[in-house]
Amino acid sequence: MNNRADFLDISQVTVAFGRSRVPVLNGIELKIARGEYVSVIGHSGCGKSTLLNVVAGLLPASGGGVVLDGKEVDGPGPDRAVVFQNHSLLPWLTCYENVKLAVDQTLSRAMGRAERHAWTLENLALVRMAQAKDKRPGEISGGMKQRIGIARALAMKPKVLLLDEPFGALDALTRAHLQDQVMQIHAGLGTTVMMITHDVDEAVLLSDRIVMLTNGPNARIGEILEVDLPRPRDRLALAADPRFVAARASVLEFLHHRHTAPGLAAA
């Protein structure tokens, strides 16, 4: 059952809230291989984040289920570490303590005290935040907070890393910088990643596959695009690459031609 192609198996997931007859997500079927980087893209309100929350175990599916590495998801856990959109660092803890809390909580059986300290510092160094380890989240920039959030998630040694629009609240330059860092980390650690985004360039640059959702409610998977670009990828070189341009065009075509944003369609 544990073959490469369905390391993370999302099977017929349907989510309906309350007594609503129309589900938010309907029959989502997606298999993600070990080490794969998959983006889920769609307009606001289509249920992208809902799908991620189901995989994270933070939200129960009304129908269908999620199996990770042969084990059914029945609640949140550190094997599916989440990087939240608004970083969600605990403001009363320093950056070090934020990561350390997750490490202590999830790896205390596998590691001794000194080892956990070293592992925390190693993860802070991985996102190049070792110098700010004793600062509190209120004292650092939005991009730095998100890097701590990534370090915290990676420090749990997750089987799959779930990114919920991780760069949405950042300015363009910081975003590009963090995207490059995530690409390096993905290349270095071989982490399986599922990322929610609404940024077409980001999806094409980072992903092996792009999953496009139709507009909600009753959102389904409209199309899955394989991004056949060699890694490591360089954003400058890719800008003129015809394969990049074609991939980008095909996602834009899906989002803006066939499935126009609901607000714009009404206007």
Binding site: P76, P78, A81, F84, N86, L101, Q105, T106
Partner: peptide, 21 residues
């Protein structure tokens, strides 16, 4: 905030430790 509760849920912080931390 729900965000903090989500963080606690993901790292499986429960019971007295959840209240204290």
């Amino acid at each position: 905030p729900q965000d903090y509760r989500n963080v606690a849920a993901v790292i499986r912080l429960r019971g007295p430790a959840y209240f204290a931390r």
